[in-house]
Design a protein around this nucleic acid. Structure first.
Lengths: 192, 192, 192, 192
DNA sequence: AAATAACCGAGACGGTACGTCAAGTCTTGAG
DNA sequence: CTCAAGACTTGACGTACCGTCTCGGTTATTT
């Protein structure tokens, strides 16, 4: 008398890894729209059935693949100066968003209409970094910041970075990060 | 003895309108990914051939449809106070971006990899509003603004608005616009 | 450890029947040129992909459909008289060729250039009847026939019948069969 | 007071030639089915309109193209011997039918269902040679022939030749013509 | 000398069908 | 119950021709 869920052959967890790895690499290579389940099956060596047993459809698969990425802890602020702390955070955030590629953001947009759950999931992922990030900043330099500064940082920094990548279409290089920190973030955070 | 380029039956411009109208309405209704050429043909009453004669593929069609939208002139600043000018501009921008629906933004994201021309076109469109907008602001209140304030406004305002709609997933209501103006834009613009 | 060739879901043989039946009936109704794969798919209830998985193109499909027809055994000669035997064979052949409709013969002609395999298949079919037929005739009345009479019968009889149907464009009625037997076949076969 | 048909610019007869020439050459090259009106227009340098003004559709065009061929008078029988006369006629007929290519016969088959007039026209063409041919034979050797021999010759000879080309799929070489004459035609014609 | 009328090239137009691709479901045989 | 393999329905893709329809412009005849 066992639970029905442990009957039969257990799922092969190596299949999970193979599937998500294949999904992530294909996502980076060809983007969301051009990503085909058949290609994922081919590259991962899994049958389409095996994929669909785990994920309801393409959107769910992509959401899971993105979610699985290493959480990429934000750097702890060294505390030497506010500018340095903000700069290292902004640089980390820019790198982190850039890496997860446009195709991934496309998934968010494309999937929002059809699958509110996917949209929710991807929003959670995109914002997870922000909340994790602001904690450290606040603990380190609470007295030097305006009230609500942490929230503002999360809101403005990622907004401007995403805008830079997607709308402007240029990379977040060192000059841009400096501009972001000196012209936008610090002026906002310092004020009372 | 005429140029060969003016020979043959000229294109029926009413077809252009019908096709682009159908494209825009379908784009709003079902989004970029679910938009099918067959549906555009059906709704516009044009044959698929007629569409493909004009646009190489779906990306090109969507780019053209979006480009055709009325430029939507920004409001001229009344000049009563800096806050009111900035607020009216921000409200107009929020409304303007919200209206052109997520499916349209999705087109930008999803199409960027496959069609650099689409990406370019949509970037141009998203930014056209910005540049048109800042001129009035600068002329009206140049002495009250920090140098480079107009550029900063365009960059930060639309970034935060897009972020709000897409990533946060909540509407740009009056409270949000007020927050945007008072907590972000004015502090940035006012500094010397 | 099984052969890779027996893996996967086997083809549904009921689909084969449905497809070939639909093809044959449409072939009879509208002819080869007007026969569309879409119509075959519709009538057979099979998806177009299912048809294309089995047959490379229209020519191959038609070849298979024609090949599948029941072999239609020729009547055994009763042996009462040479004339009666030849007459019953000729009548059977005329009926057999007439039934398989002009569209089918058109497939042979029209498809020959594009698909040598189709041509081969249809030739085999048109001639299969002939060879099967002559055996009985020879066994029954070998001593009364000229040498090589069986081959001659097959060659001339079907040639004249096909010519009658296609070039002359008139039916192979009783009078024509009598003419064929009395004026052409018997004079040729009887000679020593 | 003139007929309305002579008003306006008269048709350019050089267009007729160009169109029919292009049709015939394409017919030989690619066959009836693969023959496209667009290709005829391209090769002939005529506009599609110009073709459709003259011929209702593809079938009518092909019929006209075939009809235009030089009638190719059959050789007058030299009268030296019946065998030689029959042989020269059969050889000429075989050559004549072979030349007008399979695609042309395909046109007959394919067009019959859709256009009875085309079928009629092509039958007339295929049989024109026969009737023209038998006259000479009869005048030359009437007393040596069975009654109705000329008709029989026309019927059987072209039937066996067409059958050879289309169904058997082998060329009408010298050996075949000899076989046709000695084993089939002469035995039939000589008998009373 | 105009006006008229049919012609011609070019090519856009609404269609129909093509053959291909991918999505998501279903069916086998083996583990 | 899982897995790999692969057949299945569905639906859209982008292409090729079909036969029709403007266009601008060219001959001829008719007024």
């Amino acid at each position: 008398m066992t639970q029905p869920s442990v009957m039969g052959r257990p799922r092969d967890s190596s299949r999970d890894l193979a599937i998500l790895d294949a999904t992530l690499s294909l996502l980076t290579e060809v983007g969301y729209e051009q990503l085909s389940m058949e290609a994922v099956a081919g590259r991962s060596g899994a049958a389409k059935t095996t994929i669909y047993r785990r994920y309801r459809d393409k959107a769910a698969l992509v959401a899971a693949a993105v979610e699985r990425r290493a959480p990429a802890k934000p750097p702890q602020p060294a505390g030497e100066s506010l500018r340095e702390d903000v700069h290292s955070l902004a640089a980390w955030l820019a790198r982190s968003i850039s890496e997860q590629d446009v195709g991934l953001l496309g998934a968010l947009f494309a999937g929002m209409r059809n699958d509110a759950r996917l949209a929710q999931a991807m929003r959670r992922i995109l914002r997870r970094d922000e909340t994790a990030m602001t904690d450290g900043l606040v603990r380190q330099a609470a007295e030097r910041l305006a009230p609500g500064a942490a929230t503002l940082f999360a809101e403005v920094a990622s907004a401007v970075i995403v805008h830079r990548i997607v709308v402007v279409g240029e990379p977040c290089d060192a000059a841009f990060v400096a501009h972001l920190v000196d012209d936008i973030l610090l002026p906002l955070l310092r004020r009372t």
